[in-house]
């Protein structure tokens, strides 16, 4: 087994454990490269099927190409696609682009609150109707008790502390000082009512692993990751008002891998183009404690 095989097989094992243990399971799909690799791993684990819904939190400030790509793959791969949003904050324009919130406040409203309430089923969920090709309000409002998320330990400080199966309390809070032990391939799959478990199959992957795997498996990715001639590309994707591209000549997967291997970015955080991180003291921890991915 080579390095990528090991990572792939461990992640597949974790996905299958999640499916076997959680009746109300879903996977968060941010449309970025990591969660798209995660989606691909689910198709591996279940032999071409994805036997749980994919959740996308639509802030309505995503770069438009991301949503087009989402719906294209959802239809092509027959995915059970659901999106959620913070309708109230959007209607009342309580956002950073509207000038009524800081970046962090905006993140909390449009992402964290929307996520927490979509998972709990308190706010409407919009589910893709494959026959009509449109999203409809989902009648199922049962809370999800297992949530698969594509975070990686090497992304930033707080994520390196995660477990593969990481509990969140009834307020979606993460008690970083008191996490369950995890050894011998046994995970926390028992949980008290009103709490849920976040499942992290990609914890051991690095940015380079992700791109190597995208190349090996020929996984389709959003073109925003590539330089289209202006010497710029996105290294991490988010909302357009708060996400900035990096200087790069890389036009395709091979060139991105070559670029990462030069060590060009080794002293620049992958999420350095994400402005909200800086406002949170660089750790994202404040946001993540409240339920942010």
């Amino acid at each position: 087994m080579n390095h990528l095989d090991k990572l792939e097989n461990r992640s597949v094992h974790i996905l299958r454990e999640a499916y076997a243990n959680f009746r109300n399971l879903c996977m968060l799909w941010s449309i970025g490269k990591d969660s798209t690799v995660l989606l691909w791993l689910a198709r591996k684990a279940f032999f071409g099927h994805v036997p749980f819904p994919l959740i996308h939190i639509d802030t309505h400030y995503k770069i438009p190409e991301m949503v087009e790509y989402r719906d294209r793959l959802a239809l092509e791969w027959k995915l059970d696609m659901i999106y959620g949003e913070n309708r109230e904050a959007l209607d009342k324009k309580q956002t950073y682009p509207d000038g009524n919130a800081t970046r962090i406040e905006c993140c909390k409203k449009l992402k964290t609150e929307a996520l927490v309430n979509t998972l709990s089923g308190k706010w409407p969920r919009y589910r893709l109707n494959h026959e009509k090709g449109i999203y409809e309000i989902d009648s199922n409002t049962e809370p999800f008790t297992g949530v698969i998320v594509g975070v990686r330990a090497d992304e930033e400080g707080s994520r390196s502390k995660e477990r593969y199966f990481s509990p969140r309390d009834k307020n979606s809070d993460w008690d970083i000082g008191d996490q369950p032990p995890e050894f011998w391939g046994q995970y926390k799959t028992d949980f008290a009512p009103n709490t849920h478990i976040r499942i992290h199959p990609l914890l051991d992957w690095t940015e380079l692993d992700i791109w190597e795997y995208i190349k090996r498996e020929k996984i389709p990715t959003v073109s925003l990751y590539y330089n289209k001639g202006d010497g710029k590309r996105y290294r991490s994707l988010g909302c357009w008002p708060c996400t900035f591209p990096v200087e790069s000549d890389a036009r395709n997967v091979d060139e991105i891998i070559a670029e990462l291997k030069t060590g060009k970015f080794s002293n620049i955080a992958e999420r350095s183009g994400r402005a909200q991180d800086k406002e949170d003291g660089g750790g994202l921890e404040e946001l993540r404690r409240g339920g942010y991915m």
Partner: peptide, 11 residues
């Protein structure tokens, strides 16, 4: 100057 690499050499 070559950059130090704090990540893994996969190759």
């Amino acid at each position: 100057m070559e950059h130090p690499i704090n990540k893994r050499d996969l190759v």
